[in-house]
Amino acid sequence: MTEAAATATAARRWHLLTAVVVVAALLLQLVLVIDGGRVLDDQRPPDLGVRLGRLVSYFTIQSNLLVAIAAITLARDPSYDGRWWRAVRLAGLVGITVTGLVHFVLLRPLIDLSGWDWAADKLLHMVVPVLAVVGWLLFGPRPRVGLTEVRRAIAWPVAWLVWTLAVGTLTGWYPYPFLDVDAEGWARVLAAAGMVTLLFLALFAAAYQLDRRSRPAPSGASVSS
């Protein structure tokens, strides 16, 4: 087996592992929600329809879904490429990194979970981010990140934030405590959103630079329009 073939095999296995873990974590969280478990940080679970709506409103869930799409695709073809797929891959990569960092710094001390709720929380917020980031660093595919991809990918978190604050203003429900305008006030919420936005920009810039300067992966990968 050539070095390129061995690398491709290793990449497929890593992406497959990532896909299995993230899909299992999402399904576990879904089952827990349907069963009446807490939705990440909900203290008093509402009716099922509301719980499901809130579940898909979490940035954590959306970022894990994007990781799942990319991992499933790359498990089939580690060098896959496509104009809009690049943006999905980049958005998932940066989004899941923010998910892990924000959870570890801001949310972890506030959440007291046990049993399967604890397991789902750790898979979604810690295990999947590590698998996704390490997989990208080791196997790419790259180069895949240009300014066009950055502009397309960043539209998702901006839209999510605007939608979340709009829905929260109307319903009084916010997915994360630091976005709760009723409890924190607009000044503190906007300050927190500004800091997270800066984190996003820094991570997008880091991904762009690493993608441009790192060796192509898999071997022989090239940029296509």
Rank of each mutant, 00 (worst) to 15 (best):
E3G: 13
A10N: 03
A11I: 01
L17H: 01
V21M: 02
V23I: 15
L30K: 02
V33I: 11
D35R: 14
V39Q: 07
D41C: 00
R44H: 12
G49E: 02
V50P: 00
L52A: 00
V56W: 08
F59C: 09
L65H: 00
I69L: 13
A71Q: 13
T73R: 14
P78V: 03
D81G: 08
D81M: 02
W84N: 06
V88T: 13
L90I: 05
L90M: 09
G92E: 04
L101P: 06
H103W: 15
L110N: 09
L113I: 00
W116K: 04
D117V: 02
A119Y: 04
A120F: 01
D121R: 04
V127F: 09
V127D: 03
V128Q: 05
V130L: 13
R142L: 07
R144H: 08
V145P: 08
T148D: 10
I154M: 15
W156D: 05
W156V: 08
L161R: 11
W163G: 00
T171E: 05
T171Y: 02
D182R: 14
D182M: 05
W186T: 14
L190G: 04
G194F: 08
L201R: 00
L203E: 01
F204D: 06
F204N: 09
R215N: 01
A217Q: 15
V223R: 15
